[in-house]
Simulated scan of single mutants.
Amino acid sequence: MRRFALGLDLIDDEALIAEYDAYHRDVWPEIRDSIRDAGVANMEIYRFANRLFMVMEVNESFTFEEKADMDASNAKVQEWEQLMWKYQQAIPGAKKGEKWVLMNKIFAL
Rank of each mutant, 00 (worst) to 15 (best):
M1N: 09
M1G: 10
M1W: 00
R2P: 00
R2L: 08
R3L: 08
R3A: 11
F4P: 01
A5H: 08
A5K: 01
G7L: 11
L8W: 11
L8E: 15
D9A: 06
I11H: 06
D12N: 14
E14G: 01
A18E: 14
A18R: 13
A18M: 05
Y20P: 04
Y20V: 04
Y20E: 02
D21F: 00
Y23A: 10
R25Y: 05
R25E: 10
D26A: 10
D26Y: 08
D26E: 12
D26L: 06
V27S: 03
P29D: 09
P29R: 01
I31T: 10
I31L: 09
R32D: 05
D33C: 03
D33Y: 08
S34C: 05
I35M: 10
R36L: 05
G39C: 13
G39N: 12
G39Y: 12
V40A: 10
V40Q: 11
A41H: 00
M43W: 10
Y46M: 15
R47I: 07
R47P: 09
R47S: 13
F48D: 13
N50W: 02
N50I: 03
L52W: 06
L52N: 09
M54Q: 09
M54W: 07
M54C: 11
V58S: 07
N59T: 08
N59G: 07
E60M: 03
E60S: 07
S61N: 05
T63K: 05
F64V: 06
F64G: 14
F64R: 13
E66I: 01
E66N: 04
K67T: 02
K67Y: 15
K67E: 14
A68W: 02
A68R: 15
M70I: 02
S73R: 12
A75M: 06
Q78L: 09
E79W: 02
E79Q: 09
W80R: 06
W80E: 10
W80N: 11
W85L: 13
W85T: 15
Q89C: 15
A90L: 10
K95E: 13
K95M: 10
K95R: 12
K96G: 03
E98N: 14
K99S: 11
L102G: 03
L102C: 06
N104W: 05
I106V: 13
I106M: 11
F107N: 02
A108W: 01
L109S: 12
